[in-house]
């Protein structure tokens, strides 16, 4: 059974077709990478999936339920979490508060709590999320003062803290050092034990190391899909990347 599926998914910006007629299937438990040249429609595609923007045509199914017209908060409640390509944390709040906002949403989903929340459970989950990404001692730092690599990790921590079924990561390793990238790959593998991962990534080393399957986007459509080895051997993909 597919966790996520799209059928004929299309999005126009003015006259430009950013995503066109995409049929996409992602089985539960997989680590899937989406690659493609700049402007291929990757970010638009995942933005459609998480509900940041509305599709022009087509359907999106999550656990076989049609979520095409659901607002983002309903999708998060169903288990879709999205981390932004351009780091989008709450810069003026502490690292703890950033994660707490995600945890609070997860807690509210479990127990319908609008005004009160279990502080101990909150602390526990926040610490856990920060532990997993390796930022436990930065909880009281103002998020904007974190170094860039740590801000990316905080993004991931916020995604994690939502306890998602599907975690969408949009270019998570952009701007990270080689050392940080190594740690990040370990982290993703650990997360993948509980959640399905959809990853947009430019760094082919990361893609080849992490992804179980790869989907290649070009000009808003799926150019090709296959295992890392298959994609590596694909002539069309090489053409798209090398400007054919």
């Amino acid at each position: 059974m597919s966790l996520l599926a799209t059928r004929g998914l299309t999005r126009f910006f003015g006259g430009l077709r950013a995503v066109g007629d995409v049929d996409f299937d992602l089985p539960a438990g997989q680590i899937r990478a989406i690659i493609g040249p700049n402007g291929a429609g990757k970010t638009t595609f995942v933005s459609l999936v998480c509900g940041r923007i509305a599709p022009s045509e087509g359907r999106i199914l999550f656990e076989d339920r049609d979520i095409t017209s659901l607002p983002p908060y309903r999708r998060v409640a169903m288990g879709i979490a999205y981390t932004f390509q351009i780091t989008s944390i709450f810069g003026n709040l502490t690292v703890y508060e950033n994660v707490a906002l995600a945890v609070q949403n997860a807690l509210q989903r479990d127990h319908d709590a609008f005004f009160r929340i279990d502080a101990r459970e909150m602390d526990r989950r926040c610490e856990e999320a920060l532990d997993r990404v390796g930022l436990p001692d930065r909880a009281d730092t103002k998020a904007a003062t974190l170094p860039y690599g740590h801000q990316r990790l905080l993004e991931v921590a916020m995604g994690l803290a939502l306890s998602p079924k599907l975690l969408i990561l949009d270019e998570p390793t952009q701007g990270l050092s080689d050392h940080e990238i190594e740690g990040f790959c370990t982290l993703i593998r650990a997360i993948a034990e509980q959640a399905t991962i959809l990853l947009i990534e430019h760094n082919m080393d990361v893609v080849m190391e992490l992804a179980e399957r790869i989907t290649v986007f070009n000009n808003g459509t799926i150019l090709s899909e296959g295992s890392p080895a298959e994609i590596r051997a694909d002539v069309q993909v090489q053409k798209a990347y090398l400007g054919g």
């Binding site: 940041r52 908060y73 989008s88 944390i89 709450f90 810069g91 003026n92 906002l101 949403n105 989903r109």
Partner: peptide, 16 residues
């Protein structure tokens, strides 16, 4: 406060 700081992010954290 989260909405004040970054509404888009709050939306994507699952808040209506």
């Amino acid at each position: 406060v989260a909405i004040r700081e970054n509404e888009e992010r709050s939306r994507m954290l699952g808040y209506n």
